[in-house]
Design a protein around this nucleic acid. Structure first.
Lengths: 147, 147
DNA sequence: TCTTGACCTTCCCCTGATGGGAAGGTCAAG
DNA sequence: CTTGACCTTCCCATCAGGGGAAGGTCAAGA
């Protein structure tokens, strides 16, 4: 089958199929006489696997490893679990970071009256000096020797 | 002062100061006789404002608007609050998405024994067929007329 | 005065996943 | 043969940065 059919069956756009090929996530597709890429159902399954792995947030290097573990009949489940646990930890870190930002923001929003008046704690907070005065050095101290 | 001093005082790297200039977030800096960029404390404050806005996750277009609201003495706080509320909503959407992914992943992890055996529900789930069979069409139905 | 090295400039490439679009070749139906 | 749906490769853009090269400028010390 051609690439667009493989795209429909796998749920991965033709654009991304070519991209995964150039990124080495999938082996270079076979070609027919006119240079068109030709796919088998095995290829489609592999692409769908990639789509699902991406849907749970795995990045290219992780997916590469997952694919090779998937191919290998004798893989230990331990390896797969380790990858997943690491990835989950990263996700949780990102979530916590975003939550901290959201908390800050909603705090600011709660203090802003939000009417016609120009005074606004949100802007005030963005404009506030949050860095300590950096000791001395008046203008251009052309470092005597930094590192 | 030169760009590296402005970078230290504002907490924005010299690289990013140039980037913000080319992106139009800050007006083109004044130049001295040799073409070096020259900054005032006003410029530094503006850069620090950008840094803080980025720290709460605002993107370039939002920051552009926040800066112009900040400059304008007669702005209504309403405008600022609206931007912040919109941005918060986007943050919460992203957080919810990530949490859904994390939940899925931790569910899978919980079902994986993670030892030497090769059977692994994580890989099984990534390999599982999750798309309905797409009706018919056997091979290459070269569309008679799609859209 | 010359040397040195810290600083400045512009320009280009990289990230990661994805899409848009152009230029040009192929194929099948009418 | 024409048409248009499909395929190919290549380049560009996103976002918020960072890395680094090539080359000009400046100030301090010998």
């Amino acid at each position: 089958m051609n690439i667009s059919r493989a795209a429909v069956l796998s749920g991965v756009s033709a654009k991304m199929i070519r991209h995964y090929e150039s990124a080495g996530l999938v082996p270079a597709a076979a070609r027919n006489g006119s240079g068109y890429r030709v796919y088998s159902m095995d290829d489609v399954h592999r692409l769908a696997f990639i789509r699902r792995a991406r849907a749970v947030g795995f990045g290219t290097p992780d997916i590469r490893q997952l694919l090779s573990l998937w191919q290998n009949r004798r893989r230990p489940a331990r390896e797969v679990k380790r990858l997943a646990v690491e990835h989950l930890a990263q996700l949780q870190t990102r979530i916590a970071d975003l939550e901290a930002i959201a908390d800050t923001l909603s705090h600011l929003i709660g203090h802003c009256h939000g009417d016609e008046r120009p005074d606004c704690p949100i802007l005030d907070s963005l404009a506030a000096d949050d860095r300590q005065p950096a000791a001395s050095a008046s203008s251009k101290p052309r470092q005597a020797g930094k590192k």
